[in-house]
Amino acid sequence: MRFWKRLLGLITVLYLGFLITLSLSWVHHLKLSAEWKTVWSSELEVKTKVKPERQNAALKNRLKRLPPRDVYLVIDSAENIFYLKKDDQVIRKGIVSTGSGTVLVEPGGKRTWVFDTPKGEFFVKSKIQNPYWVKPDWAFIEEGESIPKKLEDRVEGGALGDYALGFGRGYFIHGTLYTRLLGRSVTHGCIRMADQDLEAVFKASKIGTRIYIY
């Protein structure tokens, strides 16, 4: 009986101790949480020479000058949607196909390709009408065909649609024969568009037009 009483006493003490610790911990925790809402920065300094209000206005002006003045293209690779914009206003919106994210391994494991659409800021570097596709090595490897030695054996017409916009490192915005795949991530890194959208984007853009891909 005495043993059980002592055990019960010990448990009570431990329980009360735990409650006290938890209470103290919560006081500390709330104090810490409050700090997130207040100023907490070693970099923050009181400006004495320049008025911070004036400086803020100047900084905001500098930020306002950074976005493109002309039309620009925004590609949402997660949703496979494009937006043709000017001054933050959407001029045209449509579906695209972007990189599949798959990995191609050459038999023998010599080379590998990751079919991702690059992310970041790019510029239109070339504008081509009636483009033809010069198939790279991976296109043959993927099909299980031998890589041709002659350039003419690589050329394929009609596969890229009526227009193509190059944005560097071999990536293009072009048309597609597989229109039912628009809206899905199926390409080898290029961006596929529907014919009418492609025509509108092609006509609206010029060399240097900015492309934002995320």
Binding site: V39, S41, E43, L44, E45, V46, K47, P52, E53, Q55, N56, L59, K60, R62, L63, L66, K119, G120, E121, Y212, Y214
Partner: peptide, 20 residues
């Protein structure tokens, strides 16, 4: 205002680069 000032300074560093 000071906090906003610091934020704008930091954002300007990022906005000047081509990455999002």
């Amino acid at each position: 205002i000071l906090k906003e000032n610091k934020f704008l300074e930091e954002e300007l560093k990022l906005a000047g680069k081509p990455a999002y």
